[in-house]
């Protein structure tokens, strides 16, 4: 078992700020891409997350009549919390905040939490547009979740462990991303999907007047938008030990390599926005079940064959 030191629990209090920094970098990348398409300069682009934060924190909240305030609060505040909980099991070099023996399953549990949160964000405001969007997200989730679970299982099979540090160290020589391309691809696709981002932005898209964001303003909106970048950042971090060899790499230290790899994955996830038409859940359902599910099962067979 590789030596990974668990930090004192109190260090975990720094996790949200650290992840927020990574998420801000991601938001800046997405902002830069949008700004470039609109013809704005690079400086404007890079500062978009900051100006948006300032704008939204000064904006009033609004609550539609007979909204379910409690569940809406849970959804809005839950997104950042779940994102941070998803990320804390990732080993950073030789240290880790939470050395969970079932880190892979924990990640899976947190991504399932997002089912609840996106749906609740649609239910909360008592508005037709957001209600339709929240349900549309669940329809998509039913199609990506099982392929994602199998994609998560493949690295665990090859590493004989569900602990992320073990999975990372099992890739000496060859990254799982290389010989498990299907699992890695499904992972990236699902990360975009459970963040309701890019081609899978079904919960928050202009065709439903912003979907779950249709009634959301001020700090609520900031929490949802920031929460989404946090989830993308967390998914990018988890991809590093799962598929990209963890902190392994020449010259730079393991912490630096983990961050560099996470930033690259984050760039791929963030820059998927707007590049392709939205993939509608009613189309994706059959692809998820009839194409991706068998493909990930075969991938698992390959992983099991390679492992035994």
């Amino acid at each position: 078992m590789p030596e990974v030191t668990t930090l004192q629990p109190w260090w975990a209090a720094l996790a949200p700020v650290t992840l927020l920094t990574l998420a801000a970098a991601g938001a800046a990348m997405a902002g830069a891409q949008t700004a470039r398409r609109r013809g704005d300069g690079p400086l404007v682009a890079a500062t978009t997350p900051l100006t948006e934060t300032w704008r939204l924190l000064r904006q009033r909240r609004r609550v539609p009549v007979a909204a379910d305030r409690v569940l809406w609060h849970v959804a809005v505040g839950g997104l950042p919390v779940v994102a941070v909980l998803m990320a804390v099991v990732v080993p950073l070099g030789s240290v880790v905040l939470v050395d969970s023996p079932v880190g892979v399953v924990w990640f899976n549990a947190m991504d399932v939490m997002l089912w609840a949160l996106w749906w609740l964000a649609g239910w909360g405001p008592n508005s037709t547009h957001s209600l339709v969007a929240g349900h549309r997200f669940l329809g998509l989730a039913l199609a990506y979740e099982l392929p994602l679970m199998f994609a998560l299982t493949s690295p665990a099979i090859a590493a004989h462990s569900l602990r992320l540090a073990d999975v990372a160290s099992a890739q000496q020589g060859l990254w799982f991303a290389v010989w498990m391309p299907v699992a890695f691809g499904v992972y990236l696709l699902s990360a975009v999907a459970f963040s309701s981002w890019g081609p899978f932005a079904v919960a928050a898209h202009s065709d439903l007047a912003g979907g779950v964001l249709a009634e959301t303003s001020g700090v609520d909106r900031w929490l949802v938008l920031a929460g989404r970048h946090l989830v993308l950042a967390a998914a990018a971090l988890v991809a590093v030990p799962l598929f990209l060899g963890g902190g392994a790499g020449p010259v730079l230290g393991p912490v630096a390599w983990t961050l560099v790899k996470a930033l690259v994955v984050l760039a791929v996830l963030e820059l998927s926005a707007g590049r392709a038409p939205m993939i509608r859940p009613e189309r994706f359902a059959e692809v998820g079940w009839m194409v991706l599910l068998p493909a990930t099962v075969l991938q698992m067979l390959v992983a099991a064959g390679g492992a035994s």
């Binding site: 919390v81 941070v84 909980l85 804390v88």
Partner: peptide, 16 residues
Amino acid sequence: AWAGLGVAGLATAGLV
């Protein structure tokens, strides 16, 4: 092993 989770979760909720 799990104590960090509680701290991280509470810290994030506090920040929210």
